[in-house]
Amino acid sequence: MIKSEDKNKSFGSYIRKLRLQLGIGQRELAKKIGIAASFLNDIEKEKRSAPKSNIIKKISLLLKSDIDYLNDLAGFSKKTVAPDISDYIESNPKIVSLIRSIKKNELSNDQINEIEMTINKNSSKALIIAAGLGSRLKKHTENLPKCMLDFGGRTLLQRQLEVYKKCGVNDISVIRGYKKNKINYKGLKYFENTDYQNNNILNSIFYAEEVINGNIIISYSDILFEPIVVKRTLESNHDISVVVDIDWRGYYVGRKDHPISEAENVIFNSNNEVEKIGKINTGKEEVHGEFIGMIKLTNRGANIFKQHFHRLKTIYWNKPFQRAKTFQKAYLTDFIQELVDIGIKVHCVIIESGWKEIDTVEDYKKALVGFNKKFNKK
């Protein structure tokens, strides 16, 4: 959806900006799209109106831009509805009666938003980041990604899938990297992080950018969690939500291989909005909770997430970013902190336990001891 601050942007100037940021020549882009360079030049200079939806789709993929935002810009440029919407209405004329009902009943923006949220909740999806080496698990991950570790006859990844499906999340994607061929369950969408040895969680997520839309949960692959965690996460209507455990300190008692100083902690305000997130110095500041490695985005939140990622990537590639030595090595929490720093609200979904991180050999052994009691009840 076009926001008021975006209404001065044109479709042509926006795609030109994206093209230049990615270092793609006009002729090169036109060739890949399958149009004449002169036609693309006219679009960028606003001599022609925005193209049809099939061309917009190609531009979106090539310039790594959110297709909904591009369609909205195209519609605004033409002073009409977005091309993808007009195409959909033409092919589904019954939708007109629904729009007419909204008009007749004079639904408010809040009521329309509520309808949209209900629809999105019923079609929620998940993206699991499983590309990392898992080197801290030593011999256990010499030949396996850590999400393939066994827990009671099922792998850690299978345990995650069971919980998601129990909560009605059936559209699930996985980002693979290390020992990718070991992760091969049916019914999942797979994306490959081809540079997993040189990047980190944040950049890994964007190998699956095409599915980051709608109502989506993005989670680490090395966490065991109970259904209540996913249920509470799905209930959040905020654009960007992170899951925070406020009963976190006890988990670090006696935890030697992953000390409390390495926790991804969160400080939040009275509105449950993030103020600080990451490896915060626990000795100097009051920490309210621990980020468990799960984030939820609405469709608008996904647009914000993607637009700022590409903006920051252009600025900080090969340069220090937040607590990371380079943007490539940034954690998800570095990115969240940057969003907070520029004034974007990030909501905390508060939980009290109900999850475990499997990061080290020590974590794995402890989790196995208590597994039957906590995660394998019949």
Rank of each mutant, 00 (worst) to 15 (best):
T314G: 03
F39A: 13
L61A: 10
I228Q: 15
D247E: 11
D247V: 08
Y331H: 12
I115Q: 11
Q328A: 14
I15C: 10
Y316G: 00
Y69N: 09
Y251K: 15
A82S: 14
N54M: 04
I342E: 14
M148I: 06
N372K: 13
K125R: 15
L73M: 01
L234P: 12
G283P: 07
A130G: 13
S353M: 05
L22A: 13
V361H: 07
S241G: 13
I85N: 09
L133H: 10
I112M: 10
I342K: 13
P259G: 03
E162N: 11
I280Q: 05
I218S: 05
S221M: 07
H310Q: 04
D341N: 14
R311T: 04
R136Y: 07
I56Q: 01
G283D: 12
K58Y: 05
S60E: 11
K31I: 05
N372G: 14
S173K: 06
T298S: 12
A208H: 08
E46A: 08
L29C: 03
S91F: 00
K366M: 04
L368N: 15
Q307G: 13
L156C: 13
S204F: 00
P93C: 04
E142F: 00
F375V: 06
R100P: 01
Y190A: 01
L188T: 00
Y164V: 08
H140S: 07
W317C: 09
S97T: 10
V274C: 08
E285P: 03
G25K: 06
K182Y: 05
N54T: 14
T80C: 13
D239A: 07
K378A: 10
Y88I: 03
Y185L: 06
L234V: 04
D334V: 00
K146I: 08
K306Y: 04
I183T: 11
L297A: 04
V266G: 09
N120P: 02
E285I: 08
K64M: 08
D341Y: 00
Y190K: 02
I33N: 06
T118C: 09
E44S: 13
K306W: 02
V242N: 07
P83A: 05
T118G: 11
I292K: 14
I59C: 09
I350S: 08
K58M: 04
N271Q: 12
S101T: 13
F335I: 01
N281D: 15
S4G: 06
K7Q: 08
E192C: 05
S13G: 10
D110W: 00
